[in-house]
Design a protein around this nucleic acid. Structure first.
Length: 1022
RNA sequence: GGGCGUAUAGCUCAGUGGUAGAGCACUGUAUUGACAUUGCAGGGGUCGGAAGUUCAACUCUUCCUACGCCCACCA
C-alpha cells in the first residue's frame, strides 16, 4: 500500500518568476568573427526571433550558438540586475581587471566563482548587484602605450603630458574593452549598465578627496627616504611591487685603509669590508663595526680613507654590523641601501646630507662632494649590453691599486685557486613590472601611514567582523599587517590620478627676493582654486587682495617663465606685492590607492546618502585570489574601514592559482599559459565554468586538466539528451508551481531526491564549498535522474499515454527537470537557460519571456514517504545485484529470467507487485514468483533482506556460481567477524559513543544475516 | 631565519575519530529509439614515514622526509 500524502507538504518548489526590469533602450551588438582570440563571437538575436523558433531540440548540442544568443538576451533585457527595490540586497564587487588585460585562466576561476554566487543569490530573490569595471592600471597601461609608440619609432618624450594622456585615453577607448567582452563570453552576469572605470570623473573625485582628507588627518605625508626605485620605468614602487629573486652573483672583499696612521690591534693598517655591490662604495659614508667587537674597539671614532674617491669617512659602532659575518666590518652607503640608511641616520647623518651617486636610470652621477673621478660619471651601475659598468670599473681600479683581497679556494687536490671574488647566490630585488633590479634611491615621496590604518582591520578580523575563508590565511594576514611599513603611493608616471598637491614658491614682485627657492611649501587641496583659497586666507593677506597666482605644469617651465610673466602681468599695484607660483606635483597615485576604494566609491561614495551606497555597502562577500590579499584586499579593509567606518565586507574568500597541467605556474615566458577562450571554444563556457567550480576546494591551487573540462562538456551533453528524451515523451515544463501530486513510488522517490539535493546544495553554497556544490548537482543529474529515474519511468510510457500513471509521471518528470535546470543554472547558465526555454515552449508558448536567470530557487519543505523511497532503493539494489551476478556468470545482460522469492519481506511483496514492469525492464527478471522454486540449478541474488533464486537450467556454471557466492560469503563473514570483535570489547561498548555502538550492532546484525542467507544459498546448490 | 600549505587508487583530487570516495585512465561487456560526448559490470589504495593520545587514527598531537608558496635577511 502506497500512501501518497508526501506531496502535501511540498508546496514550495515554485516556478515563480521575478519581473525583469525593462530593457535598456540600446541593444548591444557585437562584431561577429572578430579576430584575435575569438573574444567577440557574439551575434545579436532579438528576443522576438527566438520566441518563434522551434522548441524542438536539435540532435546536437552547440554551445557557441547558445552562449552568444543568451548572453545578449540577458544583457539587453536588464536581467543581470532586475528591479527589486524591496528585496534584500546582495552585493559583490568584481576585482577590476586591468584595462589592458585579457582574460587569463585565473580570471576565469575568479569570475566563475563570483558568477555562481551572484546567480544563486539572484535566484534566491535577492537584489543582487555585481559591480564591474576596469582599473586604469597606471604602470601597465602606460607601458602598453609606450611600447606601441616604440614600435612606430615614437616615444613619450615627443609629447606633452597632456598629449600623452590623451593618447592613453584614445587607446583605452579603442582597445580597453577586450577583457569585458571576454568576461561576457564566460557568462558573467555583472551589472554592465553601471560599468565603472577607476578614472571616471566620479571615481577620480573620490580618490582626490581621500588623498586630501588623509593628508589633513596626518595619515598621508611627504617624506625623504629611500624608496624602491625602478630605473627602467623611472618611478618609485611600493614594497609589494618588489619581487626577490635568487641570482648568481659575487662577493668581493676590500681593504679600506685607516687614516692618520691608525692600526688595528693585530697591526693591520686597514679594515676589511665585503660587499656584493662594489659600485656603491663611491658613495660610502662610513664603516660600521659592532659595538662589542674587540677587534675594532680601538678604531671606532677614527677614520678610513676610501680608495678611488679619497673620501674620509668615520668608523662607527652600530648593532647592524654582525661580528660573525665576514670580517665583522661593513661599508655604509646610506643613500643606496636600506640598512645603511638606518645606520647612517643613527650615526647622525640627515637624509638630506646622504650622498647620492646614481641618477634616475641608475647611471653614475657626481656626488655632492664631487669626489667621484670623472671616468665613472655616466657609467651604468653594472654591466649592460656587454659594456662594463661602474661595478666592473670599481673592482678593476681597486685591484690595480691593491685594495682587492682575492678569494682563495682549494681544490680537492689541495691546489689554491685565486679569484677576484667569491661566487654567491644573492637575493636580488626586481621590479614586478619593469623586470630590472630595483635601486634603493633617496627621493621625496608621498607615504600613507599604513600602520595606523592597519589597526582597525586587524581588530575586525580578530573579532570575526571579517571572516577570512579559508581561515588559514588569517596568520599570513596578521603577520603582514603587524609588520606593515609606510606605503609609498606616489608614482613618477603620467597616467593616473595626479596628486592634488601644489608646490608653492613665493616671491616679491620687485624682484629683490624673487628667486625660486627649492620647495618652500606644499599645499594639498582637491582643486587649484581650493589650494589658492587656502593661501589668501592667510594673515599676511588679510588686508585684501591675495598674491598674484602663476600656475605652471612643470618646474622647468616655472623656472623659465615666471620672472617675465610677473613683469608682464597687469593688475593693480596692491595685488602685485606678492606673487606665488604653483606647480602641481607631477606624480600620480599608486593604482592600488584608488582601487582600494572600489567597494564604496563605485556605489556613489563619498555621497553617503547615495541610494546604492546606502543599500549595498558594506558588500556581502569578496572573492579574490590570495595573490592580491595584500595589494588589494587589505588595502580595501584599511581604506574602507577608515573612510566609511564599516568593514567593506564581512566575508573574504581567497582562492588559489590555476596551474598548468604539470603543476607549474603559468607564465608567458614559459609558454605554458592556457587560454580560457580556447577552452570555451572547444568545450563551451558551461563546461569550463563547471570545471572551475568542481575543482575549487578551499585552500588549494587548481591544476589544469583538459580531460576534466571535456568530462563536464559531456555532462552538459548528457543533460541535453535527457531533455530530448523528456520532450519525446511529452514531458514539458511543470504546469504547477509545487511538486505535482505523486502516487507512484518512483515519482515520490525523485521528489525526495530533489529535496535532498537542494538541501545539500544550499549547505555547500552557504559554506562556499564550490566543489561540493558542483559534485552534488552533477551526481544528482547523472546518477539519480538520468541513470535511474528516467530508466524507471520508461515502462510507464510504454503503455497507455493517457493513463493516470503516465499523466502523473509526465508532470513529475517535468517538474524534476525544472528543478535541475534551476539548481544547475548558477554553474551552467547557458545550456540550462536554453533547455528551460525549450522545455517551457512545450506547454507554455510564452515561456521564453520568463527566463531561467530570474527564476526562483527551490525551497524544499518536503517530507517524502519513506515507503516509496525504500521501495525504489530496493528495486535499485535488486537490479544492481542481478546485473552484477549476470556479468560474473556470463549470462547475457538482456536475457529475461524468471525468479522466485522463497521468503519475501513485506517490502518485497509490495514492490514486486507494484514495480513489476520496472523490475522486468531493468533487472530483466520476469515473472517474479513469491514462493519456492522448483529444484534445479539456480543463481542467487540478494536485495535487502530478500533472496531471489533464478533458475538457470542449462545456462549456469554451478561451480562459477558457487565461487561467486563463496567470495561474497567470505567478505560478509570477515565484516561480521570484525564487528563481533569490536562488540566483544568491553572498552568499546562502555566507552564509545552510544550511536557508534548502536551502528556496530546494526551492521553486525546485517552482515550476520547476509552470512546466513549466503550459506543457505550455497546449500541450495549442493 | 619566520610563517603557511600539500603528501589518499596509474593521473587529478574530495573526505570523515568507527578500517576509504569521485572524475579521468584501465579491464570486461552491451548497440535499431535520449545519449558511444553512451549504458552496464569490474579491477585497483597497509590514506608519505615514525612515535604518541584513544576502546578505535586516513582523520588528533609531536617529530621526520619530500615538494610548493609567502615574508624577512644574507653588508
Amino acid at each position: 500500500m502506497l500512501r501518497c500524502n508526501a506531496h502535501a507538504g511540498m508546496g514550495l518548489f515554485l516556478r515563480e518568476q521575478y519581473r525583469p526590469s525593462p530593457p535598456p533602450g540600446r541593444p548591444r551588438h557585437y562584431p561577429a568573427g572578430r579576430p584575435g582570440g575569438g573574444e567577440g563571437r557574439y551575434c545579436l538575436l532579438r528576443v522576438s526571433e527566438y520566441e518563434t523558433m522551434s522548441t524542438q531540440l536539435p540532435k546536437t548540442f552547440d554551445p557557441a550558438e547558445i552562449e552568444a544568443r543568451w548572453y545578449s538576451h540577458w544583457e539587453d533585457n536588464g536581467l543581470f540586475r532586475p528591479e527589486r527595490p524591496d528585496a534584500e540586497p546582495f552585493t559583490i564587487v568584481n576585482p577590476p581587471p586591468n584595462v589592458t588585460g585579457s582574460l587569463h585562466i585565473g580570471h576565469a576561476l575568479d569570475n566563475t566563482l563570483q558568477d555562481i554566487v551572484i546567480r544563486y543569490e539572484r535566484m534566491r530573490g535577492k537584489d543582487a548587484l555585481w559591480v564591474v569595471g576596469t582599473d586604469h592600471a597606471g604602470i601597465a597601461t602606460q607601458m602598453v602605450v609606450e611600447r606601441q609608440m616604440e614600435e612606430r619609432q615614437d616615444k613619450r618624450a615627443n609629447y606633452t603630458r597632456e598629449e600623452f594622456v590623451e593618447k592613453v585615453w584614445e587607446w583605452k577607448e579603442e582597445s580597453g574593452g577586450t577583457i569585458t567582452r571576454q568576461l561576457r563570453r564566460l557568462g558573467c552576469s555583472m551589472d554592465w549598465s553601471r560599468e565603472q572605470f577607476t578614472m571616471d570623473e566620479h571615481f577620480s573625485n573620490a580618490v582626490l578627496k581621500v588623498f586630501v582628507d588623509l593628508y589633513n588627518e596626518g595619515l598621508i605625508y611627504r617624506d625623504k627616504r629611500l624608496v624602491n626605485w625602478d630605473p627602467k620605468l623611472r618611478t618609485a614602487i611600493s614594497d609589494l611591487e618588489v619581487e626577490s629573486q635568487n641570482v648568481p652573483g659575487h662577493f668581493w672583499h676590500f681593504k679600506y685603509p685607516l687614516a692618520d696612521g691608525a692600526t688595528l690591534d693585530d697591526g693591520r693598517d686597514y679594515i676589511e669590508v665585503a660587499t656584493t655591490r662594489p659600485e656603491t662604495m663611491l658613495a660610502d659614508m662610513a664603516v660600521a663595526v659592532h659595538p662589542g667587537d674587540q677587534r675594532y674597539k680601538s678604531v671606532v671614532g677614527k677614520h678610513v680613507v676610501l680608495p678611488i674617491t679619497g673620501r674620509r669617512v668615520p668608523v662607527v659602532a652600530d648593532e647592524h654590523a654582525d661580528p660573525e659575518l665576514g670580517s665583522g666590518a661593513v661599508k655604509i652607503t646610506p643613500g643606496h641601501d636600506f640598512n645603511d640608511f638606518e645606520v647612517g641616520k643613527r650615526a647622525g647623518i640627515a637624509p638630506a646630507d646622504m650622498l647620492n651617486m646614481l641618477d634616475a636610470e641608475a647611471n653614475v652621477c657626481q656626488t655632492a662632494d664631487r669626489l667621484i673621478p670623472e671616468e665613472f660619471i655616466g657609467l651604468h651601475r653594472f654591466k649592460r649590453d656587454g659594456k662594463d659598468g661602474a661595478r666592473e670599473l670599481v673592482v678593476r681600479r681597486l685591484k690595480e691599486q691593491g685594495y682587492l683581497i682575492p678569494h682563495i679556494t682549494r681544490t680537492k687536490k689541495g691546489e689554491e685557486i685565486e679569484q677576484d671574488s667569491e661566487p654567491r647566490t644573492i637575493a636580488t630585488p626586481f621590479g614586478d613590472r619593469g623586470g630590472v633590479v630595483i635601486e634603493p634611491w633617496l627621493t621625496d615621496q608621498w607615504y600613507v601611514d599604513a600602520e595606523k590604518l592597519a589597526q582597525a582591520p586587524m581588530q575586525a578580523v580578530q573579532d570575526g567582523d571579517i571572516e577570512i575563508i579559508p581561515q588559514s590565511w588569517e596568520k599570513t594576514f596578521f603577520h603582514w599587517m603587524e609588520n606593515i611599513q609606510p606605503w609609498c603611493i606616489s608614482r613618477q608616471l603620467w597616467w593616473g590620478h595626479r596628486i592634488p598637491a601644489w608646490f608653492v614658491r613665493f616671491y616679491n614682485t620687485d624682484g629683490t627676493t624673487g628667486t625660486l627657492e627649492p620647495v618652500s611649501e606644499v599645499i594639498v587641496d582637491e582643486t587649484l582654486e581650493g589650494a589658492y583659497e587656502q593661501m589668501i586666507y592667510r594673515p599676511e593677506y588679510e588686508d585684501g587682495g591675495g598674491p598674484l597666482l602663476f600656475v605652471y605644469d612643470t618646474m622647468q617651465e616655472a623656472e623659465e617663465r615666471w620672472l617675465s610673466d610677473v613683469l608682464e602681468s597687469p593688475g593693480p599695484e596692491a595685488t602685485k606685492r606678492h606673487g606665488v607660483v604653483f606647480v602641481q606635483d607631477p606624480d600620480v597615485l599608486d593604482t592600488w590607492f584608488s582601487s582600494g576604494l572600489w567597494p564604496f566609491a563605485t556605489l556613489g561614495w563619498p555621497d553617503e546618502s547615495a541610494p546604492l551606497y546606502q543599500k549595498h555597502y558594506p558588500n556581502d562577500l569578496l572573492i579574490s585570489g590570495f595573490d592580491i590579499l595584500f595589494f588589494w584586499d587589505a588595502r580595501m579593509m584599511m581604506q574602507g574601514m577608515h573612510l566609511t567606518g564599516q568593514v567593506p565586507w564581512p566575508r573574504l574568500y581567497l582562492h588559489g592559482l590555476v596551474r598548468a597541467a604539470d603543476g607549474s605556474k603559468m607564465s608567458k615566458s614559459k609558454g605554458n599559459v592556457v587560454d580560457p577562450l580556447g577552452l570555451i571554444d572547444q568545450y563551451g563556457a558551461d563546461a569550463l565554468r563547471f570545471f572551475m567550480a568542481a575543482m575549487e576546494s578551499q585552500g588549494r591551487d587548481i591544476k589544469m586538466d583538459d580531460k576534466r573540462v571535456e568530462g563536464y562538456r559531456n555532462f552538459a551533453t548528457k543533460l541535453w539528451n535527457a531533455t530530448r528524451f523528456c520532450q519525446s515523451n511529452g514531458i514539458g515544463a511543470s504546469a504547477t508551481l509545487a511538486a505535482p501530486d505523486a502516487k507512484l513510488a518512483v515519482n515520490q522517490w525523485i521528489i525526495g531526491e530533489v529535496a535532498e539535493t537542494v538541501e545539500a546544495l544550499d549547505t555547500a553554497m552557504a559554506e562556499l564549498r564550490f566543489d561540493a556544490a558542483a559534485d552534488t548537482i552533477y551526481h544528482f543529474v547523472w546518477d539519480r535522474f538520468c541513470d535511474w529515474y528516467l530508466e524507471l519511468i520508461k515502462p510507464v510510457f510504454a503503455g497507455d499515454a493517457d493513463s493516470s500513471a503516465a499523466v502523473e509521471t509526465r508532470a513529475v518528470a517535468g517538474w524534476a527537470l525544472d528543478q535541475i535546470l534551476v539548481m544547475l543554472h548558477p554553474f551552467m547558465p547557458f545550456i540550462t537557460e536554453e533547455l528551460w526555454s525549450k522545455q517551457g515552449a512545450v506547454n507554455d508558448k510564452n515561456r521564453a519571456n520568463y527566463p531561467l536567470i530570474t527564476a526562483k530557487w527551490p525551497e524544499p519543505q518536503a517530507s517524502v514517504s519513506k515507503d516509496a523511497t525504500n521501495a525504489i532503493d530496493w528495486v535499485i539494489e535488486l537490479t544492481t545485484a542481478t546485473r552484477s551476478a549476470r556479468n560474473e556468470l556470463g549470462i547475457p545482460p538482456g536475457k529475461k529470467l524468471a525468479a522466485y522469492c522463497p521468503a519475501p519481506s513485506d517490502l518485497a511483496t509490495r514492490t514486486i507487485e507494484r514495480s513489476a514492469a520496472a523490475i522486468e525492464r531493468l533487472a530483466r527478471l520476469t515473472p517474479v514468483t513469491l514462493g519456492e522454486m522448483p529444484s534445479g540449478p539456480a543463481m542467487q541474488v540478494m536485495a535487502g533482506a530478500d533472496v531471489f533464486v533464478v533458475p538457470l537450467e542449462g545456462v549456469i556454471d554451478i561451480e562459477a556460481e558457487k565461487a561467486r557466492l563463496a567470495k561474497a560469503l567470505e567478505a560478509s563473514a570477515k565484516e561480521a567477524k570484525s564487528l563481533e570483535g569490536r562488540l566483544g570489547n568491553a572498552n568499546f561498548v562502555e566507552r564509545a559513543k552510544p550511536e557508534a555502538v548502536e551502528k556496530a550492532r546494526a551492521d553486525h546484525a546485517h552482515h550476520s544475516a547476509e552470512v546466513e542467507r549466503l550459506t543457505t544459498a550455497l546449500g541450495r546448490l549442493e
